[in-house]
Write a protein that binds this DNA or RNA. Sequence first.
DNA 1: ATCCGTGCAAAGTATTTGCAACCTA
DNA 2: TAGGTTGCAAATACTTTGCACGGAT
Lengths: 157, 157
Amino acid sequence: MEENTVKLKEQLKEKGYKLTTQRQVILDVMIEHQGQHLSTDEVYSLVKEKHPEIGLATVYRTLLLLDELGIVHKLDLDDEFSRYELNTDTKDHRHHHLICMRCGSVIGMEEDLLDELEQQIRDKYNFLVTDHRVKFYGICQKCRGVENTGASVKRTL
Amino acid sequence: MEENTVKLKEQLKEKGYKLTTQRQVILDVMIEHQGQHLSTDEVYSLVKEKHPEIGLATVYRTLLLLDELGIVHKLDLDDEFSRYELNTDTKDHRHHHLICMRCGSVIGMEEDLLDELEQQIRDKYNFLVTDHRVKFYGICQKCRGVENTGASVKRTL
DNA sequence: ATCCGTGCAAAGTATTTGCAACCTA
DNA sequence: TAGGTTGCAAATACTTTGCACGGAT
């Protein structure tokens, strides 16, 4: 059984919750699309391909639950919906996102590299950082190559 | 006349827009609450104290406009509404926010300190960073002093 | 058998928009 | 005077919730 499924099963049991088909299916979709940043509606569509009887409200409720359990992460990519990605971080620190302003692609970067900065914040502000959320906006590798081709700006999240 | 008001007037004229009483009043409110992170509804309430006839839609439209002009910055503080603060940054780089998980206060830190990290992103990912958005979560100075006093967690944004 | 979980539809809520009247430049 | 701007209300659109039925333990 997949690692995240085991994790889900354990955590659900621990809290007296049940592992239902719906929860299993929704987690499967997230696993199959690891690295992507799916909106609730996109998850719903993918879920319906396998189990058309599953309702949108269940997807909302389950994604919320998975986020609480730390199995997925909710994120804000500046559009009008909530998006989720499978949690691949180890500590309580999240990885960062590079958002291309030209083509809209979103790249996840594994490195944290903020430890030093957080130490400075601790020293100067006496503020103890336990987590952070970082988004970088700019121009991605691909778009730096093709300058002004008038290419589509449709975002692929 | 206040610096930001001059800036507003110039930028509006440049684009063929008009400086109305409503826009003036809304900017005044933002200036009077510099450093705070007001929701649209909070701005609306403050505006109504001076000019009860101004409508909510106008506040929405004006805040959107001021954000486009770079006079205010829209920000996301993880609650259900858009928040705005007067822009005090010089470059196109925004300052960071320290969010206390215990008392909910939000501190703006002037320092950027991300130049080195952005250079690393450029080297490794060939991604040219032009802007960023950074939030740090943790425990603020005040709350680190009073450990577990059971104090209110109501957020003061 | 218990009671958590689900599907559906209705409700909720922040935000946007159409439009006639208004007012700035 | 002309056209951008406003206020109001209606419309949007994502998300949440009430409730009776269904299913996992």
